[in-house]
Design a protein around this nucleic acid. Sequence first.
DNA 1: TCTCCTATATACTCGTCGGTATATTGATTA
DNA 2: TAATCAATATACCGACGAGTATATAGGAGA
Lengths: 209, 209
Amino acid sequence: MPLPNAAPSPFRSREERERDREEKREAVLRAAVRMFNARGFHATSLDDVAASLGISKPTIYHYLGNKEQVLIECVTRGLELLSAAADTARAQPGDGLARLRSVLRSYALVMMDDFGRCVVRTGDEFLSPEGAALFRARKRAIDLSIRALIEDGIADGSIAPVDVRMTAFTLAGALNWPGRWHAPDGPLTPSEIADAMVDILIGGLAPRT
Amino acid sequence: MPLPNAAPSPFRSREERERDREEKREAVLRAAVRMFNARGFHATSLDDVAASLGISKPTIYHYLGNKEQVLIECVTRGLELLSAAADTARAQPGDGLARLRSVLRSYALVMMDDFGRCVVRTGDEFLSPEGAALFRARKRAIDLSIRALIEDGIADGSIAPVDVRMTAFTLAGALNWPGRWHAPDGPLTPSEIADAMVDILIGGLAPRT
DNA sequence: TCTCCTATATACTCGTCGGTATATTGATTA
DNA sequence: TAATCAATATACCGACGAGTATATAGGAGA
């Protein structure tokens, strides 16, 4: 049993050092994603990112190989949030429509997160062919998740017999949009925005007779 | 009365020369907008644009003062298409919902045009502060047009009493999306895509009882 | 203690690209 | 015909920014 050690030792164990390293990597990514979102990828230099953290550019290269890698990690984090949203909500109880509603809500919330925004603000054209292919594959998986849910809903009668493919595009398009306009200091909370959008998409505009 | 002149003269009149000039400007803009859409603004050099037309960079500077000006003209063309879509459809007969439907359809179609796409692919961050302000003002005007139409529809009972602001955002978001993914050589025509999206947005997903 | 690895910095290279200075040609006009 | 203007090119400048070569300092392990 390890002795309790009140005064923290300045000597770090292997795990502590690895955790430190991971923390620094994360800090770089957070700083980078914010600047990418605010000014655009090409308009953000790694010198800027480094300066915002009070470090120098080679330090960034030490933790993340090159500029594209930084972007890819940011986008990947966002895509993982999106996948997680789709997967957990899909596993919930309820009919297709209820589960879809839950996924859409989570999706919208992710789009108001720094990493989520980054997904929608990053065009394929910023990535190398390999990076872009990976990016597309992961987005496609999310799209398929949503389509599956729509199909479930149509099968159980909770969703009208719509065109699944176009519906998934339309829903995703609408929910991606906050990633471009939402400002975190606006009057509405992300949760309110998500609810309002989902209601409109689920219910449509024409009055129920 | 001017004599009919069978053989076209190599000497151009003032109007002809002005028309020539205008045509060349347009050609530059069309070439530029395509490359901006395909590769992104920052990744497209004016040397590339010039080369694609078989001319040299200073010729572009002769017709359009600088690179931002090229982008602004492209975006402005797209915004004008959007405004025109909103204004003409608004003037049509029918209740609020019918007119909104018509505007949404036209809006979606513009988003599958080169200049329309450019609007949605161009972030504020690419423009100078003045350019961005102009851009935002024109987008706001279009948003207000759509909101007015939704309000009309609510007033005449053809649209359910939704949150006008959020609804306008949601609709615009969904319809902007084709500007990012639609490929002109896809299996569906722009017209089919526009119809499908509008139906989904107007009707919602839950089955009508 | 000597060596090696990690973290970090300074100072550099080099390619790209927006923008310009300047020359040329040919048509328009006085 | 001389002067001017429009249209275009070649060749250049200067800035910026990705990425690297190299040095240093200090902890880790033998």
